[in-house]
Design a protein around this nucleic acid. Structure first.
Lengths: 256, 256
DNA sequence: GAGGGCATAAGATATCATCTTTAATATTTT
DNA sequence: AAAATATTAAAGATGATATCTTATGCCCTC
């Protein structure tokens, strides 16, 4: 299915504009490709055509085709290569990159800490449960390494925070459910503070202990126990984080 | 903060290319804007500049600025307006549109039905729980209307399927947690089949009854009950859907 | 394996078309 | 005559086209 024959979806009928609804030419091409994708007319790796192909096929200039490809590229739908044999192909998905994009959107929409942390609880609880069921030896080794590294850097707050986040992500990855991973990434970017001022050594220690316990439950395949512990853990995080963000929001309002 | 003064992030130092790492010029502009966004240097509504502004500021041609804006637009980061007073502004987020984009990515990555439906369970259970806690009169009225309409169209399978999906989405919306809504949308687009061949009248009726029961639990603010019922419900859907998709995948493999 | 040809995207420049807001002007109404 | 309302014109921006040069990979030959 990887021929050089450009198989483009349909045809835009000439350049007839419906009176009131004249979207840009490039957006029409984008729409058509997306529709074809949803209808399973394309598979990852399929050749879509070169700029010139698209321009000719839709009867538009190369710039328009370019614009459409820029958009499709940004949407993660196509990959573009230069040089001989180059052109646009349907991309293999990269949901992780997109999770970050979704994070930007959630941020712009101004979701509250409570919303994020509720969702985080739902996702991470299931993640822990499935991790206990599906984790491989490699997954567990990675979790062990992360816990050890966190313990060694318990006084380096920024690093410890990062390692702690990595642990949570590694648990989700151990569930072997890509949807959960992606959803966790998308909220992590919004949720985790760059600096964590209220992180006292006392709290740090407690968090590390919980992570150790969780790792043990995953090792012993205690899915119910893992879920329960993660539930408590995220609730604790929530209890600490929500008032923190509320305060921040208030001071920001106050200062402007 | 809505002046016409373009306040663009930093400056790309001339056109000096680092030997081995020369990304496209437009992608650099995109990166810079994204970084500035993450650093909270922009707020929704801020004026970013016109194509000409950007081109001049970064010392590139209008085409490059255009490419960057196309990408940023596709990423939902900026909104572009034509005409006098037009140009690019930082967008108010629209996570819903993005949820669809994420759905495309999940689809391209080829996630399995099991992965999706596990995630769905996590999200919808919490959604039902929070809906029972937070639903307003309007939310409940909408749920009632959807149930009634579904009952009236119980024999129109495509329409019933759509109404059924809308009911699930409306429950999530009644939770007043935008993150849950977005995550549900992103998996719905992958999960819900266009045609549902195995939907017998018997099953249809049973689903409708569950929806009615769920609505009752939300009305009576029984959050634990709502969660429990939704849990069973999604498990049932999963039991029906997973083997269905497996079969489909197998036949597709067989045919090509 | 090193170099050259070739196909392709990346980028620049110039020009015109189209859309949208704003302001000026004409017209009607009071 | 004054005020409200259409109409028109101008300006500023994106949308689209055409044509050119440059940078990049790929493949083939030597």
């Amino acid at each position: 299915m990887d021929t050089r024959t450009p198989h483009i979806a349909g045809r835009i009928p000439g350049r007839i504009f419906v009176p009131g609804r004249s979207a840009s030419l490039s957006s029409r091409i984008v729409d058509e490709v997306r529709a074809a994708l949803f209808d399973k007319k394309f598979q990852p790796g399929d050749f879509l055509g070169t700029e010139h192909d698209l321009a000719q096929h839709y009867g538009v200039s190369r710039i328009v085709a370019r614009d459409a490809l820029r958009t499709l590229e940004a949407l993660g739908i196509v990959e573009i290569k230069m040089g001989k044999g180059g052109g646009a192909r349907i991309a293999r998905g990269n949901p992780r990159l997109f999770a970050e994009a979704l994070a930007v959107q959630l941020d712009l929409a101004g979701v509250t800490a409570a919303e994020i942390l509720d969702a985080q609880r739902a996702i991470e609880c299931l993640g822990a449960e499935l991790a206990a069921e599906n984790a491989t030896e490699e997954d567990i080794a990675k979790l062990r390494a992360l816990v050890a590294e966190a313990e060694a850097n318990i006084d380096d707050v920024p690093r410890y925070t990062r390692l702690s986040r990595d642990f949570h992500l590694a648990v989700a990855e151990a569930s072997h459910n890509r949807v959960l991973v992606v959803q966790l990434i998308s909220i992590d970017h919004v949720s985790w503070p760059k600096r964590n001022p209220t992180l006292t050594p006392d709290v740090t220690r407690k968090v590390l202990d919980v992570h150790k316990d969780l790792l043990k439950l995953i090792e012993t395949r205690d899915n119910a126990g893992a879920r329960r512990l993660m539930d408590e853990h995220v609730k604790m995080i929530r209890a600490r984080r929500v008032p923190e963000r509320e305060r921040k929001r208030k001071t920001e309002e106050g200062c402007c």
